[in-house]
Each structure stands twice: as structure tokens, then as C-alpha cells.
Simulated assay, not measured.
Amino acid sequence: MKPQDIANAITQALVQGGSQWMVSTIVAFLPVLWTMTLMLHLGRPYVLRTLRRCGLRLGADVWWMSYLLIRDAVLLITFGLSLVFFLPNEVANAALPLTGPLAALLLLLALAVKLSRRVDDDIQAYRLATVFLVLGATLYYGPLVFAVEATSQSYLAGFSTFFTSDTNVSVAFPIMWISLVGVVVVAGWLFIRAWNAANHAMARRLTPSQVQPEQKQRIPAMQ
């Protein structure tokens, strides 16, 4: 075996091992992010009560803005890392929650509600986002706790086999593709909405500058 072949084999092994380690780390860290997402979202009443007792207006504004930024950033990061559930090779070869793609789709729907409606001012929008998050967390935590992490429990063997992706690929792939279509549809709707909003904002900015010269021309000259 030539030295170059040995070097290529070592490089390939490092790349494959690194990718597997990265995926395993993401999957292991996702429960923490899901928990933080739920805590920050459901902790809104506590934050509001704290703000009412805050006598310093500047401190209240800083506290509220920090809460909003952290809450939405954690939600966005959780969805970004949940894209691992849409990798066919990982779904087929790694022990992932069977309904993980559906949980990611519901997470995106909650994010879409936050982007399209004033969740912090509209109680109905807040409740809708809460429903999406709770359903997504249920679809994620259920298979994770009682299937992926319960392989040592013999009385959960049937549940574990069915709700683990690599042991039930025939069901995992349809769920993944259906959820992926839903993600594409929601993402496309958000893109079109953002595009239209940007066009309207640009039109409002350009209209006064275009109308003003015409108005100046219509003013009769003083004699």
C-alpha cells in the first residue's frame, strides 16, 4: 500500500468520523435547545410581571429587549439544527426520533407566526405559537425519551423499534419528505411575504421623492 493511499484513507476516516461526531453532537444538544425554547416562550408572563415591578424605565427596556432577542435566537438556532432530521442518510443510519421532522416543521410554523404577527401584543397569536411549540416538543420528546433513549427497556421494545428512524425506515422516509415539503412551503411563503414587504417599503420611500419635483413644477411663478 502506497503512502498516498494511507494518507487518503486517514483523511477519509477523519472526515467521516468528524461528520458523524458533528451529527451526534447536534442530536445530543437538541433536547437542551428545545427545553430552552419552551422555557423562554412560556416564561413570557414571568418576564412581564418582573418588568411591572421594575422602577427604572431604561432597565425594563434592556431586560425586555434582551429577553426577546435571546428567545427568538434560541428558537431560530433550534430550527437550524433540526435540519439534521431532513438528511436521508442520517435518518436511515442514525437513531433519530421518527417524528423529528414533524417537530421541526411545527417549530418553523411557530417561527412563521412570530414573523407574520405581533405575538407579544396579540394574545391569539401567542396562543397559536404556543400550540405549535408544545405539539412540536411533544413529537420530539416522546420518541426521544421512550424510543431512542429507551432501548434498554424491554417493555418498550415495540415502541422503540417503531419510533426510531433507523429501525423503521419505511415510515421515517415518508414523514421526512412530507415534512420537508411543508418546510419548503412555509419558507417560500415567508420569503414571498418578506419580498412584498420590502417592495412596499421601498415604494413608500421612493414615492415622495418622485412626487415632490412634480409638485414643485406645478407651483406658478411669482410675477
Rank of each mutant, 00 (worst) to 15 (best):
A150G: 09
A95K: 13
A194H: 09
A60L: 00
G80N: 01
P97V: 10
G188Y: 01
A201W: 03
F146G: 05
V181T: 15
W63I: 14
K114W: 04
R71D: 13
A104C: 11
T151H: 15
S165Y: 08
T164G: 03
A187H: 02
L190E: 07
A197F: 10
H200A: 07
A94C: 07
V113P: 07
G100D: 11
V84H: 00
V185Q: 02
D61V: 09
V62D: 04
A73Q: 12
A201S: 11
D61C: 06
G136I: 01
G142L: 15
T167N: 10
L111K: 03
P101R: 10
A103R: 09
V91K: 10
I70Y: 03
D122S: 02
F191W: 14
Y126P: 04
F86Y: 12
S154R: 14
W64E: 14
T130M: 07
R193N: 01
L75Y: 08
T167E: 01
T167F: 07
Y140A: 07
L135F: 15
N168H: 14
L107D: 10
G182K: 09
G158M: 08
D72M: 04
G182Y: 06
L68T: 09
F146C: 06
V62G: 00
A147I: 05
E149R: 15
L180H: 09
I77Q: 05
R118H: 06
N199C: 08
Q124L: 11
W195Y: 12
S179D: 08
D122Y: 07
A187K: 05
V113N: 03
L180Y: 12
P174T: 00
T138H: 02
A198L: 02
V84E: 11
S154D: 15
D61Q: 14
L107P: 07
S116R: 12
T130K: 04
D120R: 02
A157T: 15
V113Y: 06
F163I: 06
I175A: 11
T164Q: 10
V169G: 02
V169C: 05
L96Q: 13
L115C: 04
G188L: 08
Q124S: 10
W189F: 11
W64H: 14
N199Y: 02
F173L: 13
L83M: 15
Y126V: 05
A150Q: 08
L107F: 04
F159Q: 06
I178W: 12
L96K: 01
M65Q: 15
R118Y: 03
W63V: 12
L135W: 11
D122A: 01
L69P: 02
F79G: 12
S154I: 14
L180W: 12
